[in-house]
Computed example of a mutant assay.
Amino acid sequence: MKFADWMSAVQDRTETALAALLPPADALPGRLHDAMRYAVLGGGKRVRPLLCHAAGAVFDAPAAELDRAACAVELIHAYSLVHDDLPCMDDDTLRRGKPTVHVEYDEATALLVGDALQSLAFQALTEDGAPSCQSRLSMLALLAQAAGSRGMAGGQAIDLAAVGQALTLEELEQMHIHKTGALIRASVLLGAHCGHADEDAQKRLAHFANRIGLLFQVVDDILDAEANTATLGKTAGKDAAQNKPTYVSLLGIRQAKALAGELRDEALAALAPFTGRGERLAGLTRYIVERTF
């Protein structure tokens, strides 16, 4: 299957799996369930599920198990976006080309949507079709750490505290290793767990994921600086307007693009031991860069 066809197939099956996992909009409480579906379905490139499936493909992991893991990580990501857009955080009104959840519904509903999506993510890893008991425990621990104070939530806290501050490149990397990179790393390792990857393979994939996590953020900063709102589907230039440190504000566009190229090459090099089995992961690495410049 060609890479573009594979991507489309994984995106479609993820959408189907998410739609089945989310409570129906007509089930009580209807407004909350409707808002949950609004936040998750019909938008996004599903990069994290793609990474999960691509990592699982290295070890011939069963597709049904990968679907559960992919849904879990995407639900955590969706919850983080809903909360990130709230007035007390980034205060944004546009996400994936449509009004943010607190604009379309209200702030209290948006808060509950995030809470409910986070809970549903962990439920997804415990239901039928998930891996064996020991694997489930390992995957639950992995996702919990990636989402918590030592991962995504902690990175967001550092980001909020860094507004108006002059960070070094190392400090900026540490922030994004937590804020963006932790969930991307979890996506890759959850897929590997579904394929029962050994410890050495997991270490190699963790290194790959660390590189691609930073790459994703560098590219995101470049997109935010160069693209317009219609292209992004969210408010362009928001970080600069809020005086947040970014790779572009620290390095400039040219050096940020050069850094993206270096991170791409490092990520691809980390896949070398997997020979042809890592081609889907390699394709995603190139895709993250080529969607921008």
Score class of each variant (00 low, 15 high):
residue 2 K to V: 01
residue 2 K to L: 11
residue 3 F to Y: 12
residue 4 A to K: 14
residue 4 A to D: 15
residue 5 D to K: 13
residue 7 M to T: 11
residue 11 Q to S: 11
residue 15 E to K: 02
residue 18 L to W: 07
residue 20 A to Y: 00
residue 21 L to Q: 08
residue 21 L to W: 04
residue 24 P to A: 14
residue 24 P to H: 11
residue 26 D to Y: 10
residue 33 H to R: 11
residue 34 D to N: 08
residue 34 D to E: 15
residue 34 D to V: 00
residue 37 R to S: 05
residue 40 V to N: 03
residue 42 G to S: 05
residue 43 G to T: 03
residue 45 K to Y: 06
residue 46 R to F: 06
residue 47 V to G: 02
residue 53 H to K: 01
residue 56 G to R: 07
residue 61 A to Y: 09
residue 61 A to T: 05
residue 62 P to R: 12
residue 66 L to R: 15
residue 67 D to E: 15
residue 67 D to P: 01
residue 69 A to C: 12
residue 70 A to E: 07
residue 74 E to L: 03
residue 76 I to C: 04
residue 79 Y to F: 11
residue 79 Y to A: 13
residue 83 H to T: 06
residue 84 D to Y: 06
residue 89 M to L: 14
residue 92 D to Q: 10
residue 94 L to F: 13
residue 94 L to T: 02
residue 98 K to V: 13
residue 100 T to I: 03
residue 103 V to P: 00
residue 104 E to L: 09
residue 108 A to K: 12
residue 111 L to G: 01
residue 113 V to A: 00
residue 114 G to Y: 02
residue 120 L to D: 01
residue 121 A to H: 06
residue 125 L to F: 03
residue 125 L to H: 07
residue 125 L to P: 09
residue 127 E to W: 05
residue 133 C to H: 12
residue 133 C to T: 12
residue 134 Q to F: 08
residue 137 L to E: 04
residue 138 S to L: 12
residue 138 S to D: 11
residue 141 A to Y: 04
residue 145 Q to T: 12
residue 151 G to T: 09
residue 151 G to A: 08
residue 151 G to L: 09
residue 154 G to Q: 06
residue 154 G to F: 05
residue 155 G to N: 08
residue 156 Q to G: 14
residue 159 D to E: 14
residue 159 D to C: 05
residue 161 A to K: 14
residue 163 V to P: 00
residue 164 G to M: 09
residue 167 L to R: 12
residue 174 Q to C: 06
residue 175 M to R: 13
residue 177 I to E: 13
residue 178 H to V: 00
residue 179 K to S: 10
residue 180 T to R: 07
residue 180 T to W: 01
residue 184 I to L: 15
residue 185 R to D: 04
residue 185 R to W: 00
residue 188 V to I: 06
residue 189 L to D: 01
residue 189 L to T: 03
residue 189 L to Y: 02
residue 190 L to A: 07
residue 191 G to M: 10
residue 192 A to V: 04
residue 193 H to W: 10
residue 193 H to P: 00
residue 194 C to A: 15
residue 199 E to W: 00
residue 201 A to N: 10
residue 202 Q to F: 00
residue 203 K to V: 07
residue 203 K to G: 00
residue 206 A to K: 14
residue 207 H to D: 13
residue 210 N to H: 11
residue 210 N to Y: 06
residue 212 I to D: 03
residue 214 L to P: 12
residue 216 F to P: 12
residue 218 V to A: 01
residue 218 V to G: 11
residue 219 V to Y: 01
residue 225 A to P: 02
residue 226 E to I: 09
residue 227 A to Q: 13
residue 229 T to Q: 13
residue 229 T to G: 05
residue 232 L to C: 10
residue 232 L to Y: 09
residue 234 K to T: 06
residue 237 G to L: 11
residue 239 D to G: 10
residue 241 A to Q: 15
residue 242 Q to E: 14
residue 249 S to M: 07
residue 253 I to A: 00
residue 254 R to V: 13
residue 260 A to H: 02
residue 263 L to N: 07
residue 264 R to C: 09
residue 265 D to C: 04
residue 267 A to K: 09
residue 270 A to D: 12
residue 272 A to H: 13
residue 274 F to I: 06
residue 274 F to P: 14
residue 274 F to E: 07
residue 275 T to H: 15
residue 275 T to W: 01
residue 278 G to R: 03
residue 282 A to G: 15
residue 285 T to W: 04
residue 288 I to R: 08
